[in-house]
Structure formats: structure tokens, C-alpha cells
Design a protein around this nucleic acid. Structure first.
Length: 464
DNA sequence: GTCAAAAAAC
């Protein structure tokens, strides 16, 4: 195709008419000027987001953005920049997080000074994407923000608090909560929701309830997110009576439960083996005018799998598809896990093939689950084949992969190989997690092996 | 009007 033809094929009012593969082709050939008129008619952030969604390499998108900025210099506002940064920072497709400092440098070069929102976006990018030590980086950005005389806002603190909670560091989250008040910022509903959720997910239910009371005392009205977080807290502790009480309170407060509210309850019932209650709640959703989602069905399907009723689980998937809801990766992961636990790993692998045929992209969990299934059946060769398959799909083994394989090797007494895998994992810079510590290490110790992960273990236990 | 919060699968 000539450039001229390409130009014609992407012309048109806005984005409807353009073909993303054409665009990627243009991008990779660096025919950027062809795309220039396009940027005038659309919001660059939307445009770039579409590129990322279409799987165009994020580095390329970033370079293109950089170039277009220079071309247009002041034609985009800071808002658009912030949005673009957000997409780039959060893009799951991004190979690596673009260095915050670089982004800021570039912005300055464009003649735009970063503001609170820019920094907030970057902090959030680190909180959501980074691996171990991400919060350290997020805090570093905050320091830089202060150095540039930009005051953190409520959003900055909310982002940090949530980030700490997701890292299971409730202590740091509480510190940030204090700090924000010292700086004269008032915690809002989002702040409380993040903390309450963090406390609930870390088993500190009483503190969560206390915080709820405090927030009401301060005149803040809990919203549906607050309710969902607390319900989740009770559900995790298997306190279904209390969860139901909170659930019933929602309508009394003239709030409306949403799909997440229902899904949380349904999942909890299913985990307790109370399938009837789960199904009953699912049909009551419809009465309330809330449509069950794929996630709703996933909870129920998982419940049936736990009961080792795979035919029923499969049947429910069909039923759901008849209602126009397609199964997703999670659905298949659940079914694969169910088949494996049922001792039918070969069937599980058939499900994996089915996923491919449906155009669903298996993720790490898919492969890890299947490998675990084979390992549990003592079929180590099959498990290793899955690993090869996974790597062919450009998925690098992660900590869980190694845990599963090491466990599998230990199980059949291949300790040398298990130790080799452990070293491989450490060499790759993967951080051992609790399972590595609790299961893998103990198992190896029992067999007389002293795995060399103590230093790493010290790091992870020192964090909490 | 940019940015922040809730559930499910190893």
C-alpha cells in the first residue's frame, strides 16, 4: 500500500472510519505526518488510547505522542497531556512503566509545567502497576512534587492510601491518613472507602466498623462503595448474618445495591456451599432491575465446581451464553481449575484449547492452574509442556508458576530439579511470596534441602 | 470537567 492510499483510507470525520491496522502500519513506518491531520479533529488522548487498545507498542505510541506534541506545541491543553500520561502509565500493554522523571522532563520541554493532576496520575500509575517497592517510587514522585512546589491534594493522598492498602501495608495507609489531616486536607468518602476496604481485606473488621462510625460522625454519608467494602469484610470472615444485615440496610438508606453488591454476597454463599441461597440472590437481582453479569455467573459456576459438579457448571455456562453473556477468561479459569481438582487435567487442557478457538487469551492464572493440575496428578512432563506452551505465547513464568512447578517436583522426590527451579526464579529477580515460604520452603526443608531464600524471605516478612 | 474507592480465577 502506498502512503497516498493510506492517507485516503484514514481520512474521514473522526475515528469511525479508520482502520487501526493501517494506523499501526503508518506508525511503525514513521509516516507520522500522515496522521497529523487526524489529530486535529480528535482528542489525542482518545486516539492514543485506541492505539494502545489495538495493541500498538506503547513505546511507539509514546514516541509518536512526543513528536505530535512538538508539532503542535501549545495546541493541546494540559488536561489532554495528563490523560495521555495516564493511559501510558496504566497501560497494561506497556512493557514497562515509562519513567516518571522522563515524562516530566518532556512536558517541561514542551513548555507545559506539570500540575497536581499530572503528578497524581503518575503516582497512581506506580500504585497500580509497579511490583515490589512500587510504593517507594510513588512516594518519591510525591517528594519531587513537593520540590516543585506543588501541593498534594486529597486525590494524591487517596491514591497513596489505596496503594498502601493494596500492598497490605495498612499501617502506612493509616500514616498517610494522619498526614493528610496534618496538612489540612479533609478526608472524603473515597478516603474512608479506601481505608475501610483495606482494613476489611486485611482481616481488621472491627477497625473498619469503627472507621465507618467515625466517617458518619464527621458528616460523611457512606455510599454504595462503602457498603460493598464492608459486606465484603463480613463475607470474608464468613459472617453471613452480619453481611445480610448490612445488605438490608442499603435500601433503608435509600441507596441502591449494584451488581458488585450482589456478586459479593452470591460468591460468599457459594463459598459456604449454600448454592440455593446463591441462585436465589441471582434471581432476586432481576427483580431489582439489576442484570446479572458474567462475574455473577462466574461465582455460581465456581460454586458448582467446588461441589465437583462439573456437568452442572458447564450447563450454567451454556445457559449464560443463551442469555447473551459470553464466558470470559475467568470463567474458563474456573472451569479449568474445577476439572483439575476433579482429577481430569486432560479435560482441563481441552478447555484451554477451547479458549483459543473462542479467541479468549489465556493469562498466567490459566497456565498456572493447568500446570498445578498436572503436577497434582504427578504428570510432570505434561506440566512442563504447558510451561513451554505458555512461553510460546510470550508469557514469562511468574512466582506462582515457579511455586507450582517446585511443589510438583518435590512431590515426586526430584529435589535437585526443584532446587534448580528455585535458583532460576531467584536469578530472574522474582520475589518469593508467602506460598514460597509456607509451602515450598517447608517441603524442601523436610526433605533435607536448605533452600537459599532466607535473605529474600527476610525481605518479605520485614515488610509487614 | 482531568486524577482517587467496591466483588470473582493460581
Amino acid at each position: 500500500m502506498t502512503t497516498d492510499k493510506l492517507t485516503r483510507s484514514i481520512q474521514g470525520p473522526i475515528l469511525h472510519s479508520f482502520n487501526i491496522s493501517t494506523i499501526s502500519e503508518l506508525l511503525s513506518k514513521q509516516h507520522w505526518s500522515v496522521l497529523k491531520p487526524h489529530l486535529r479533529v480528535t482528542k489525542p488522548a482518545t486516539f492514543l488510547d485506541q492505539l494502545l487498545n489495538a495493541g500498538v507498542d506503547s513505546e511507539l505510541v509514546f514516541r509518536f505522542f512526543n513528536w505530535s506534541q512538538k508539532e503542535f506545541r501549545f495546541s493541546y491543553g494540559l488536561e489532554e497531556n495528563a490523560k495521555v500520561l495516564h493511559f501510558l502509565a496504566n497501560s497494561k500493554r506497556a512493557g514497562k512503566l515509562i519513567k516518571a522523571e522522563d515524562v516530566i522532563e518532556d512536558m517541561k520541554a514542551w513548555g507545559i509545567s506539570p500540575n497536581v493532576v499530572t503528578y497524581n496520575t503518575l503516582v497512581d500509575g506506580y500504585c497500580k502497576r509497579g511490583s515490589a517497592g512500587k510504593m517507594y517510587k510513588a512516594e518519591a514522585i510525591m517528594k519531587e512534587m513537593l520540590a516543585n512546589k506543588i501541593c498534594p491534594s486529597e486525590v494524591t493522598f487517596n491514591t497513596l492510601i489505596d496503594g498502601f492498602c493494596k500492598e497490605e501495608n495498612v499501617l502506612a495507609a493509616k500514616k498517610a491518613f494522619e498526614e493528610m489531616q496534618t496538612q489540612g486536607l479533609k478526608p472524603n468518602v473515597v478516603t474512608y472507602n479506601s481505608l475501610i476496604n483495606g482494613l476489611c481485606n486485611n482481616g481488621k473488621l472491627e477497625e473498619a466498623v469503627d472507621l465507618w462510625d467515625k466517617m458518619v460522625d464527621f458528616g460523611l454519608k457512606p455510599n454504595i462503595v462503602t457498603y460493598n467494602a464492608l459486606i465484603n469484610g463480613f463475607c470474608k470472615k464468613k459472617m453471613m448474618k452480619e453481611a445480610t444485615k448490612v445488605f438490608d440496610d442499603i435500601t433503608k438508606q435509600e441507596l441502591v445495591p449494584n451488581a458488585i453488591t450482589f456478586n459479593t454476597m452470591i460468591d460468599a454463599y457459594c463459598k459456604e456451599g449454600m448454592m440455593e441461597e446463591g441462585f436465589a440472590l441471582c434471581s432476586s437481582m432481576l427483580d431489582e432491575g439489576i442484570w446479572p453479569t458474567v462475574s455473577t455467573y462466574n461465582c455460581l459456576i465456581a460454586g458448582l465446581c467446588r461441589k465437583r459438579d462439573l456437568p452442572a457448571a458447564r450447563e450454567l455456562l451454556n445457559e449464560m451464553e443463551n442469555k447473551g453473556l459470553k464466558g470470559n477468561v475467568v470463567t474458563y479459569n474456573i472451569l479449568i481449575d474445577g476439572s483439575c481438582k476433579d482429577g481430569k487435567s486432560r479435560n482441563a487442557e481441552k478447555l484451554l484449547n477451547e479458549m483459543f478457538n473462542l479467541g479468549l487469551k489465556p493469562n498466567h492464572i490459566t497456565y498456572n492452574t493447568l500446570m498445578d493440575g498436572y503436577c497434582m496428578e504427578g504428570k510432570l512432563k505434561a506440566a512442563l509442556n504447558v510451561r513451554t506452551r505458555m512461553e510460546k505465547e510470550r508469557k514469562q513464568p511468574n512466582v506462582v508458576t515457579y511455586n507450582v512447578l517446585i511443589k510438583g517436583h518435590c512431590k515426586i522426590g526430584k529435589l535437585e530439579a526443584a532446587n534448580g527451579l528455585l535458583n532460576e526464579m531467584l536469578e530472574k529477580g522474582l520475589n518469593p511470596n508467602r506460598t514460597t515460604y509456607d509451602v515450598v520452603r517447608l517441603e524442601m526443608l523436610e526433605k533435607g534441602f536448605i533452600p537459599d531464600i532466607e535473605g529474600h524471605l527476610y525481605n518479605i516478612s520485614g515488610m509487614s
